[in-house]
Simulated assay, not measured.
Amino acid sequence: MSLDYPYQDAFNRQLAERAMADATRAEYTATLKDFFHYLENFNPTYQREHRVNQLQTQDVEQYLAMLVDSRQIQNQTYNKVLSHLNVYFKFLFSHNWTPYLPTLDLKSKPKEAAQSVNYRWVDRLDDLLADRRLHVYTRLTLLLVAQGYPVQSFLKPGVTAQLDPSAWPASAQTFLQEFRAFILPLQQRFQCDDWFLKQRAAADPHLTLPGLHKYLRPDEAITGFALSPTVLYQGYLVNYLRRHPQETDREVVSALHLPPDSIDYYRRLSQRAD
């Protein structure tokens, strides 16, 4: 079985010795897999020889800058990723597998002040769907989030192809007519019925989250609010809770398909929302 990143087996043994929870080990794997995938595609130092012992501080900085600029990660996520990379490179250094500690001079970011959640965008959905200045992928994202789909769901291959929007509101039906005219040639080219597809030839035609952000970010100048799908989804959840204050936790969990332990968090957000 091929490894997702250098020295993966040895590093996993180290994590196991620390009695780390399976979910936490999975987070390390996801971080390091993504880090080295990025290096393979965008970092000339690593592309030349694929040698981890050649990586230096600027190589890690480049990856972290991409996370901030392209994926719009928050400071909390930034610090977690940096912590994962720091533990990994300290492990390599302790075994003399790298002469450098490329994370040594990198600092974590300050904790961000709590911000109010924008939940009002959901009430503007009809106007947003009709605004042709917004890219169709931007409007499709808004529509799907307003239907209760988080981004990790609707970007997954096979999900949107199975959706039945027949019961969605009239504004959605009008937009979907426009959207189908846009997406049909791409679906025919790639022989794929999903809704988020790349516009250039690719082995995998599905649009990635960083790819989606390339459409969303420019449109923020038009909407006047953040279009990060994660932030939009928070706003949708808060909007729902404000509209249904009498629903029990069980009813909310059922309606929103949320894990029960997250209900209190979103209720507090809805109570703080101005």
Rank of each mutant, 00 (worst) to 15 (best):
Tyr5Arg: 13
Ala19Ile: 09
Tyr28Met: 09
Phe35Cys: 00
Phe36Trp: 08
His37Asp: 10
Tyr38Ile: 06
Leu39Glu: 03
Phe42Pro: 00
Thr45Phe: 04
Val60Trp: 04
Glu61Asn: 08
Tyr63Pro: 00
Ala65Ser: 07
Leu67Trp: 01
Val68Gln: 08
Ser70Gly: 03
Arg71Gln: 14
Gln76Pro: 00
Gln76Phe: 07
Val81Asp: 08
Val81Leu: 05
Asn86Glu: 03
Phe89Trp: 11
Leu92Ser: 01
Pro102Gly: 13
Leu104Phe: 13
Ser108Lys: 11
Pro110Lys: 14
Lys111His: 14
Glu112Thr: 14
Arg124Pro: 01
Leu128Glu: 09
Leu129Gly: 09
Asp131Glu: 13
Arg132Met: 08
His135Asp: 14
Val136His: 13
Leu142Met: 14
Leu143Arg: 13
Ala146Gly: 15
Gln147Gly: 02
Gly148Trp: 12
Val159Arg: 12
Thr160Ile: 05
Ala161Asp: 02
Asp164Gln: 15
Thr174Met: 05
Thr174Arg: 09
Leu176Cys: 02
Leu186Tyr: 01
Phe190Gln: 09
Asp193Phe: 04
Ala202Phe: 08
Ala202Ile: 07
Thr208Met: 09
Pro210Glu: 13
His213Cys: 11
Leu216Ser: 03
Ala221Trp: 00
Thr223Glu: 04
Leu227His: 02
Ser228Gly: 06
Leu232Ala: 04
Leu232Met: 09
Gln234Ile: 04
Gln234Leu: 01
Leu237Cys: 10
Val238Met: 15
Glu247Gln: 15
Glu247Ala: 03
Glu247Asn: 01
Asp249Phe: 01
Leu256Ile: 05
Ser270Asn: 08
Ser270Thr: 03
Ala273Tyr: 06
Ala273Val: 08
